[in-house]
């Protein structure tokens, strides 16, 4: 029997046939939802092999390595209660964690609160850029709900919609988009002027199509302002929720887009890297989640002209949704994304 896990991290035992059946079901779910091509039989067999190897840790073959970008790098250390400064955390990532890229982030990981402390963040960026060699991102979340009541000035669509106030809910989201774009461009400009190589918009579209539109518009404005700036648009999930339902970018309705469609708009907006995200279903098995996530990501890679980095962290990219993601699943997901998904990075 193969020992694997559920999406919530709990152990389960499955036969090899059951593992294969679950991978195929995950692939099928991605195909049905995204209307994309399935993995080939050989690719599915390789995923079965990855899942069924008895070793705790699995890795890529030599030569198949890819680039790793770590979102919210500094937070990963401060979250552990280790009281050290941001430049030092970045040095640890560079020299001890072998990170290919670095990412500075403020503990209130959203553009709106950062707007008020941009000068302080500029210090951190400038100091870090002096003592590190690897490319440096500054990252934050667009977090559109912070612009809605009770946290912001705009009415809350999540309250208006269930009350049947559709036009009001849509208008509120459109108003929030304007505020969010301003903040993203302001913060993005500030950290770039301080010496960062680029900006990472993390968990984009967590609040749906309006948030995706805001991020694309901010990306477009930053690209026009700084032609050499690196801009990563990392998503929040595989599907853009139609919380507004009618918003478009470049003539394309944003609601309902899947990664292979999202990446085309990121390209159009001027992004340098697209971060594809597929959420882990905590009630399904790791093989099911892996088959599904790799299928979505592979389709995205094939559609893209820019590098695609899949998010393979807690609760995404087939990794179980637990605070301490197990190494057996993370290493398998990492390997599968590189060798079957053919990602440019994670």
């Amino acid at each position: 029997m193969i020992v694997t896990r559920m999406g919530d991290g709990s152990f389960i035992k499955m036969s090899e046939e059951e593992v294969k059946a679950d991978i195929e079901a995950g692939v099928e779910d991605a195909v049905k939802r995204g209307k994309i091509e399935p993995l080939t039989a050989a690719e599915i067999d390789y995923l079965v092999d990855i899942c069924c190897r008895p070793q705790k840790f699995v890795s890529v073959q030599q030569g198949n390595e890819l680039i790793l970008t770590y979102d919210s790098g500094t937070l990963k250390i401060t979250r552990l209660g280790i009281p050290i400064g941001m430049p030092q955390i970045m040095q640890i990532y560079e020299r001890a964690f072998a990170a290919d890229t670095l990412e500075l982030a403020y503990v209130h990981y959203s553009f709106k609160p950062i707007k008020m402390i941009v000068p302080e963040e500029q210090y951190a960026v400038a100091e870090t850029s002096l003592v590190t060699t690897a490319p440096l991102f500054y990252g934050a979340m667009p977090n559109l709900p912070l612009y809605t009541q009770p946290d912001g000035p705009c009415p809350n669509a999540a309250e208006l919609l269930p009350a049947g106030k559709i036009a009001e809910a849509r208008a509120a989201q459109e108003e929030a988009v304007e505020y969010a774009v301003k903040d993203m461009v302001f913060v993005g400009s500030g950290v770039y002027e301080a010496g960062a190589d680029g900006i990472d918009f993390d968990t984009t579209a967590a609040a749906g199509d309006a948030e995706f539109q805001a991020t694309l518009l901010a990306c477009e404005q930053l690209r026009a302002k700084y032609p050499d700036m690196a801009i990563e648009i990392g998503m929040a999930g595989e599907f853009v929720l139609g919380f507004h339902g009618q918003l478009e970018y470049d003539g394309v309705r944003l609601a309902g887009l899947y990664p292979h469609q999202q990446v085309k708009l990121a390209e159009k907006a001027g992004a340098s890297i697209f971060g594809a995200v597929v959420n882990t279903n905590s009630s399904r098995t790791f093989p099911w989640n892996l088959g599904r996530a790799v299928t979505f990501c592979k389709a995205c890679v094939e559609a893209a002209k820019i590098p695609v980095h899949a998010n393979v962290g807690m609760g995404v990219g087939a990794v179980p949704l637990v605070m301490t993601p197990p190494i057996d699943c993370v290493s398998r997901a990492s390997t599968a994304m590189a060798e079957v998904g053919k990602l440019d990075g994670l």
């Binding site: 919609l161 049947g164 199509d209 139609g242 919380f243 609601a255 309902g256």
Partner: peptide, 9 residues
Amino acid sequence: GELFLPELI
């Protein structure tokens, strides 16, 4: 994903 939240409402 064929219909969205406002349409559902």
